[in-house]
């Protein structure tokens, strides 16, 4: 499903550099990535999702070399085949929960917001316990409820690849388990792959594979002269 080959990405301003020689995920595989903060886990997810373009290297998702596509084609690929649960949730404060869940359909002409989509949105919301809160605004929800709404939005297009960036962060154990159940169930149902960044070690046994992000990185390439984020990254890896 995912094949990363000789990936290189850098933020020239703060000297941050991400280099991964090789990283693969099979179709239907559920993989957790662990590692300290600030090393580039979120950046890797965004590169895989086609949101950030790498400096070099090849990334294949579902057989498509993502960064060879035009901006519009890559965007269409992302919204139809990849579900992304963002670390910051990215809910729009001026839309209620239901409108947030279906928002991707409103802003992308390639997605058709028909009756079945609305039905599926209602079903997903019921599954995560938000069925009676669809008319609420995000500001009226707890953090857990907001996180569940973000998960619903990511799962709505039945993606082939689910990327979850700290999807269970700041949640109580019951909610964490519930969210993970939801992600796993969606992945099973669509035979989709799941790549989740997490700090919750108690959840790791449920994944097919756990990858320590440090093992992915080509440490030798982290610049010794780097300051700020790069320096802290280096310190953590030495």
């Amino acid at each position: 499903m995912i094949a990363v080959d000789a990936l290189r990405f850098s933020y020239p301003k703060d000297g941050f550099c991400l280099e991964i020689d090789e990283f693969n995920i099979e179709t239907g595989e559920k993989v957790a990535i662990i590692g300290p903060s600030g090393v580039g886990k979120t950046t890797l997810l965004k590169i895989i999702a086609g949101i950030i373009r790498p400096d070099s290297g090849k990334i294949h998702v579902d057989g498509v070399e993502l960064h060879q596509l035009s901006d519009a084609a890559r965007r269409n690929f992302r919204i139809t085949r990849i579900g992304f649960v963002f670390q910051e949730l990215e809910l729009l404060e001026y839309l209620n929960v239901f409108d947030n869940i279906i928002h991707t359909y409103r802003i992308n002409p390639v997605l058709d917001l028909d009756y079945s989509v609305r039905e599926r949105a209602h079903r997903l919301a019921d599954d995560v316990g938000l069925g009676n809160k669809l008319a609420r605004m995000p500001g009226e929800l707890s953090q857990g409820e907001r996180q569940r709404a973000a998960v619903c939005r990511a799962l709505l297009p039945n993606p082939r690849l689910i990327l979850a960036d700290e999807a269970t962060g700041n949640l109580d154990p019951a909610n964490k388990s519930h969210i993970l159940d939801l992600l796993f169930e969606a992945a099973y149902r669509a035979n989709a792959s799941l790549l989740a960044v997490t700090h919750d070690h108690e959840l790791l046994p449920r994944f097919d594979r756990v990858v320590n992000f440090r093992t992915l990185l080509a440490i030798r390439h982290i610049p010794l002269f780097a300051e700020g984020r790069g320096a802290s990254v280096l310190a953590r890896h030495l």
């Binding site: 965007r75 992302r78 992304f84 990215e90 809910l91 729009l92 991707t104 802003i107 992308n108 939005r153």
Partner: peptide, 19 residues
Amino acid sequence: RELQTIFLLGCSKTKVLRL
């Protein structure tokens, strides 16, 4: 921040202009 969110959700610049 809001525009960044809708870009992340796959909104094109043309669509933002239309909104």
